[in-house]
Structure formats: C-alpha cells, structure tokens
Simulated assay, not measured.
Amino acid sequence: MLNRVIEQFRLKVSSIDEVEDSHSSTVYKCNLSNGENVFLKIPFTKLKYQRELEAYEILKGSVPIPEMIDYWSGDEECPGAFLLSELKGNSLSTKAKPTIAFQVGVLQAKMHSIRPPAEKALSGIKNEFPNWSHFVEEQFYSFAEDVRDILDEHLYNKAIETFKRMKQELPSAVGPSFVHMDFRPANIIVDEEKVSGVIDFESVRFGSTEIDFTKLYRDFLSYDDSLYIAYQEGYNSIRPLIDLENVLPFYRFTDAFNSIGWCKRRGIENNALFLKENVVRLKKWLL
C-alpha cells in the first residue's frame, strides 16, 4: 500500500522511516531526492480519513498546522492518504519552559474558539455537543465491554458506580467547540522557543471543551505547577478557561478507564506499559 501511495503522489523518495506513537494512522517520514522532508499519512479507516480532511479545511488560517500538499481519496483497499509538509521541531517535552506552555494554551484556545461551520455540511466531523452527556456515556460503556476482561469484578463494578456518581456532578457543558480529542505532547510540535503547531486530527469532534484538557494535563501540565499556570494564562489570553478543577477529576478517571479498554482492543502485549500505567491510575481513583 505504501508503494501505491508513493506512486499516487509521484514522489521521488530517498529514504523512508515509519513514525512511532501514531495510533490511528500509519505515518511515514519521507526524505525526497531534493532534500525536502514530507509526511505520508494513511488513516486506518475511511471515517478517520474524512475527519482529517475536513479538519484541515476548518483549521487552515486559524491554527498552525502542517500544509496539506495533496490528498488521495483511496480505493477498495486503501481508505485514503495525505501528503503533508513537515512542521519544524520535535514533540512537546515536559522539560519545556513556561513560555512554551503559554503558547500551548494560546494554540488550544484558538482551536476551541472554532465553532461548527454554518455554510458547510460535514460528513466526517460530527457535532456531538447537543447530546454531549450521551456521547461521554456511550464512549465509556463501549470501552467497558473491553475493560471487563481486564479488571477483577469488584474493581470493575466500583468503576461503573464511580462513573455514574461523578458524571452527575459535572457542570453544564461548554461549546460547541472544535475539540481535538487527542491533544497530547506527541501531537504538539515545538521548534526551540516556539510552538510550530498541532497535528493528527483523526478523532476530532465538535463538542464540549472540557474533554480536551485531560491528556495534556496527564502527560505535560501535571509535571510542573509553573507549566500549568503559564498554560492557563495563555489560554485565558484568547478565551475564558473553564474551571478545570470541576471537570478534570471526572475526565482523568474516564481517561484511565477508557485507556484500559483501548489497550485491550489494540493488543495487551504491544501496550503492556500503557495498560499498567492506567490500571495504577484507575486504582488511585477507586481505592
């Protein structure tokens, strides 16, 4: 399939490396014969392809993203593919300075300021906001089918009870906003002292902003109070930040639970470390 995509885009490739930490697509970094680096991205499903395509159209000019050089709608064997420019830099690190955290806050706030386009019908990105409570519940119970096979019965039942209780305590949802759904350091590119942009839009929705802070907090903001404070200042410079202390506990809990289910679906052996981390996180909430 890779060779077919290379032929489709008529690329003259010198070398190819598969990109790690890409969970909803197969991504390759290609060095071309002219010395330029580009990325080939092949989503796992047609729906993920369509979401990505629409996201690039919606975000262009509003949020820093790679340039979509070309795209292919695929065929019976391939769900589609994208040819993307390279964002200079590396993935966000917990060693970043507060000035970078401020920029990350600005970037996410700009993304959350985008509302569903009134003039364009979308077939990939769904507006989940009108039924947000149902959407969150549907996601949780979908993964619960997989989590049941991992946890002992007592812990599993306690998780279900905790979900019901915490969900009732949530404040009113805020939106509809463009939510990334996988806004984590691996998808935020930093070039020295500047945030270059954000990548990977296979899971995006229009929904409540409250769900979109969880992974960033888990993998970045929770490591240093100065990062957390700077991030909030950056976000607030664009739009008011919701009271995260009211929503993060619920979404951190559901993130740990859902991640256990995700590991079961994607293969326990290949995701053993991530599975162990989330079982520990879940037990902290429950025990």
Rank of each mutant, 00 (worst) to 15 (best):
K120E: 13
S93M: 09
S85L: 06
I125R: 04
P66H: 14
S113C: 11
H112L: 10
Y49N: 07
M111T: 15
L59C: 12
E54R: 14
H112I: 04
P64S: 15
G89E: 07
E54C: 07
E52T: 14
K120W: 11
K60R: 15
N131H: 09
Y56W: 01
L53S: 04
Y49I: 03
C78G: 00
D75N: 15
A109N: 10
K88R: 15
K60F: 05
L87Q: 01
S93N: 07
M68D: 09
V104F: 08
R51D: 05
F102K: 11
E128M: 03
A81P: 10
E119V: 09
E57M: 08
K110P: 00
V104C: 13
W72Q: 08
L59V: 05
P116L: 09
T94M: 09
L59G: 10
E54S: 09
S93G: 06
G74R: 02
K97V: 14
K97P: 01
M68C: 13
A55V: 06
L87R: 03
V106T: 13
G124Q: 10
Q103F: 05
E52K: 01
P130L: 01
I69L: 15
L87V: 04
N90R: 15
A101V: 10
K110L: 12
Q108W: 02
L122D: 02
S123D: 02
E119S: 15
S123Q: 13
R51A: 06
L84R: 00
R51C: 07
I125L: 10
G105K: 01
V63T: 08
I125V: 04
F82D: 01
D75L: 11
L92N: 03
D70M: 07
R51I: 02
L92R: 04
P117F: 09
I65R: 13
Y71C: 07
A81D: 04
W72L: 06
F82R: 02
Q103R: 05
A118F: 06
M68T: 11
P98C: 12
R115D: 00
K97Q: 15
I125P: 02
S93H: 07
G89K: 10
S93E: 14
E52P: 01
A109E: 08
F82Q: 08
T94N: 11
Y49K: 07
L87A: 05
L84Y: 01
A96T: 10
P98L: 12
Q103I: 08
N127G: 04
C78P: 00
E76G: 02
K97M: 14
N131S: 11
G89M: 11
L92C: 12
E128G: 00
S91M: 13
E67T: 15
I69D: 03
S123M: 08
